[in-house]
Each structure stands twice: as structure tokens, then as C-alpha cells.
């Protein structure tokens, strides 16, 4: 016998199901007034330091169909790479946003501030990125990924450097489609499958 290891196991995930927006985005679900103030409505408010950008895209399943029922959460630092609560962080950046696809077009839109680089334990900082967490019916445990930007220097990013198949790096890079506008599509499965993370 040996001494016991007294760790608890993490509670298992279950799918968020088709009605996740009832609980987490009630106005989007058609139930305005459920709460006085909803959470994650916008990651920025008021006078934000830095560049305000819009990222549009869709979440595609393995058949190429754009999901209408996914819920995405984004989490990010301010333009200088400081997360809410850290010293000197921009008070206009709450960092969290919840969003879903348009019921007709299947396209989502995230309006936020372009994040700055953040420190890592790997010697080089992480290039500017936004973390995403995607849940939906048929997704049994939330999928994590990141949005990087094609107009930033991503060459020394410690996470992107870990991707063995170099063409797959491209799946994490938002493409510039206009002034302060980017496109970032997420492919759950198959050709061009997005790199999902276990971090």
C-alpha cells in the first residue's frame, strides 16, 4: 500500500445542448428581461485604449454546414496585454464576450479591442490572440481555440510553434478583410479542421 493521493476528479462535461442560449444569452434566445443585466454582452465599454476591431466568421460542421446553434465565449486582455484585474489593466475592457451565429446566415460577429501580446513561460511572449470556447448540441466537451491575426508577427509564438503540420497554423489566423475587420472561420471537422486546444 501507499499513501492516498487526495485529489478530486474534475466533474465530467456534458453537452450544452440546443437551448444553451436560454441560460447564458436569454435575450438572444428570445427571452429578454430574464435578467436585469446579462453577462458577456460586450468585451469592451466606453473609452477603450487601442484599436477597436470586428471579427466575423462561422462555425462549420464536418459536412460544411454553418451551425446556427453554437454559443461562443471569447476571453482576452487589453491592447497592452493586461487581463482584467491585473495591474494597470484598461478598465474599459471586461475581456469576456458571449455570442452566437445569426439564425439566417449562420455568421457571428465579435466587436472588441485588438489584444496585445501576453507573457509565457517559454521565453517568448504569446503573439496577440483571443481565446475562444465553443459549445453546442453535439459538442460533448467545450472546444478551446485561439484567434491570432495575420497582420501581427506570429513567427515566435510558443503555441503556434508547436503545430507540427505547418499548414494547420493557418486555421488559427484571422484574415484581414477591411479596415479593422477580420474573418475567422472555425471548422469542427474534416478538411481545414481548426486546431483545437487542450490547455
Amino acid at each position: 500500500m501507499v499513501q492516498p493521493l487526495n485529489y478530486l476528479a474534475e466533474t465530467p462535461s456534458q453537452t450544452a445542448g440546443p437551448y444553451v442560449h436560454i441560460g447564458l444569452m436569454p435575450t438572444y434566445a428570445g427571452n429578454p428581461g430574464s435578467y436585469q443585466e446579462e453577462i458577456g454582452v460586450s468585451p469592451i465599454s466606453g473609452e477603450v485604449q487601442g484599436t477597436v476591431i470586428e471579427i466575423v466568421g462561422s462555425v462549420y460542421d464536418g459536412t460544411g454546414w454553418a451551425l446556427r446553434d453554437a454559443m461562443i465565449e471569447s476571453w482576452q486582455p487589453d491592447a497592452a496585454g493586461r487581463f482584467p484585474g491585473q495591474d494597470g489593466a484598461d478598465p474599459a475592457v471586461s475581456g469576456l464576450c458571449r455570442f452566437g451565429a445569426d439564425a439566417v446566415t449562420g455568421e457571428f460577429s465579435l466587436r472588441t479591442v485588438k489584444p496585445g501580446p501576453v507573457p509565457s513561460r517559454y521565453g517568448k511572449p504569446f503573439a496577440p490572440h483571443i481565446s475562444l470556447w465553443i459549445v453546442a448540441r453535439g459538442i460533448n466537451i467545450g472546444l478551446q481555440t485561439r484567434i491570432y491575426f495575420e497582420d501581427e508577427d506570429n513567427s515566435e509564438d510558443p503555441l503556434l510553434a508547436r503545430i507540427e503540420q505547418r499548414p494547420r497554423v493557418d486555421t488559427l489566423i484571422a484574415k484581414k478583410i477591411g479596415e479593422n475587420r477580420y474573418r475567422f472561420d472555425i471548422r469542427l471537422q474534416g478538411a481545414g479542421e481548426t486546431v483545437f486546444l487542450d490547455i
Binding site: 460542421d61 464536418g62 454546414w65 451551425l67 476571453w75 453535439g138 474534416g190 479542421e193 486546444l197
Partner: peptide, 18 residues
Amino acid sequence: SVARSPNLPLLSMESGPS
């Protein structure tokens, strides 16, 4: 879940500030 589950392995890495 059949068309919504990734086919490829997840990229594992130690957590960072994000």
C-alpha cells in the same frame, strides 16, 4: 456528435495567462 467532433487530436500545452 458525428459531424461536430474533431477528427484530429487536440494540441496539448501547459496553461498560460489566457
